[in-house]
């Protein structure tokens, strides 16, 4: 049986779906970054082991 949707409801759902998808995918991508980005990319900047630094002067 075909569902009956009001035009306002339809537009609301459309906007919500758009916003939700945009936000959701962005955060999904963010959370997957550590998995998706291969090792050795620049996000892994880290201090060196065994080096000796000086404090800020």
């Amino acid at each position: 049986m075909p569902a009956t949707v009001s035009r306002r409801g339809f537009l609301k759902a459309l906007v919500l779906a758009w916003a939700g998808a945009a936000a959701g995918l962005d955060s999904l991508k963010e959370s997957l970054r550590s998995v998706l980005i291969p090792a050795g990319t620049t996000l892994h900047v880290r201090p060196p082991a065994h080096s000796v630094g000086r404090k800020a002067r």
């Binding site: 075909p2 569902a3 009956t4 035009r7 339809f10 459309l14 779906a17 945009a22 995918l25």
Partner: peptide, 26 residues
């Protein structure tokens, strides 16, 4: 101005439109 009138839409078509919207937004 959009009138708040009912529009007839099949469930399949509604879900299809939502899916397309989500893909477009992504």
């Amino acid at each position: 101005m959009i009138e708040d009138a009912d529009i007839r839409l099949s469930r399949r078509r509604f879900l299809g439109l939502m899916g397309a919207t989500a893909a477009f937004a992504a």
